[in-house]
């Protein structure tokens, strides 16, 4: 098991190095010079001497391989570098913003579980009824409607028409918990939209599957109450695949919060990534993409290790 785990860790490290190299190469190949762009803000012509000076200061005048070697050496020391725009350490930016993105995803997942599992269970229990058809149709609609449409509608209705909510923004939890949660509500709802539908569908299918299993028939034959059978036997068994799918979707949401963060002005990791790409802020782009990749790889590694611990067939395969 130890050897297998060590192999998996090495594979993960190679994967991270590959991602780092690909991102480093691609962002340097894309047209657009960071120094020119930084000094051309607002559509103005920068002084060529100032551009040359800035290029030198940013190290952009060095050969590509020298820059790459420097990047790898810093990465090995856990140093993501500093932003080309304002010299701000990228690790600080990531540590500041990543929790906000993770909070958004977690809030969306909690909402998805709170809505998707009970409604999915009820739809399975009332299979073929109007309720089942209506909820299934709603789930299809939620999956079909783009996230920016839902986001814009939420702002229109709750901020502009009803004036119940701020249109968007962010206040740190420590400064004002109530305001923080209020501002979290709409983006969390928007991000939960697709997850609710996924959780609903998975729950419905898994509950229907469990309901037809022998152990449920046996529980009924033993005279257990319907509620006890549902909670302790049906839902408990059905929930495992639901949570697995949820975990996988949360991983993909790490890179998918861009629109929600933009529409609601939620200052997570996506906004600086977009801005960094626009400005060709190489270290910032690489730092953020690498962070997301490391999280992905780590999540997969943990899942592999857990599965292997639970199922010996995997580690002997």
């Amino acid at each position: 098991m130890l050897l297998w785990a060590a192999r998996r860790v090495v594979v993960s490290l190679v994967l991270i190095w590959t991602v780092a190299t690909v991102v480093f190469t691609v962002i340097h190949l894309v047209p657009g010079d960071p120094a020119e762009l930084l000094l051309s803000s607002g559509g103005v012509a920068p002084d060529p001497a100032a551009v040359a000076e800035l290029r030198e200061r940013l190290g952009l005048d060095r050969p590509f391989l020298v820059q790459y070697g420097d990047f790898l050496s810093r990465l090995a020391r856990g140093d993501l570098g500093t932003s080309m725009i304002d010299d701000h350490p990228i690790m600080d930016e990531v540590l500041l913003r990543l929790p906000r993105t993770l909070e958004l995803i977690a809030a969306g997942a909690v909402l998805a579980v709170m809505i998707g599992i009970p409604v999915g269970t009820e739809a399975a229990l009332r299979r073929g009824t109007v309720f089942d058809r209506a909820t299934s149709a709603t789930a299809a609609l939620l999956l079909a409607v783009p996230i920016f449409v839902v986001g814009t509608l939420l702002v229109l209705v709750f901020a502009q028409w009803l004036r119940w909510m701020p249109a968007g923004g962010y206040v740190p939890l420590a400064r004002d918990p109530w305001q923080h949660l209020t501002l979290l509500t709409m983006p969390a709802l928007a991000i939960a939209k697709g997850l609710v539908a996924v959780v609903f569908r998975m729950t419905r299918a898994a509950v229907l599957d469990s309901l037809s299993r022998d152990f449920v028939r046996t529980a009924r034959a033993k005279g257990l109450s319907p509620a006890r059978i549902l909670v302790h036997h049906v839902v408990r068994n059905a929930i495992i695949p639901v949570l697995t799918v949820l975990a996988l979707h949360m991983g993909t949401l790490l890179g998918g919060t861009v629109l929600v963060e933009y529409v609601f002005n939620w200052p997570g990791l996506s906004t600086p990534l977009l801005k960094a790409v626009e400005a060709r802020d190489y270290p910032m782009v690489i730092g953020i993409v690498l962070t997301i990749s490391v999280l992905f790889v780590a999540l997969n590694l943990v899942m592999d290790l857990v599965y292997a611990a639970l199922d010996p067939r995997i580690r002997h395969a």
Partner: peptide, 14 residues
């Protein structure tokens, strides 16, 4: 950054 949200923020009194 979103121009529509900027207008919405003004209209909503933010």
């Amino acid at each position: 950054a979103d121009e529509n949200l900027r207008v919405a923020a003004l209209q909503a009194g933010d």
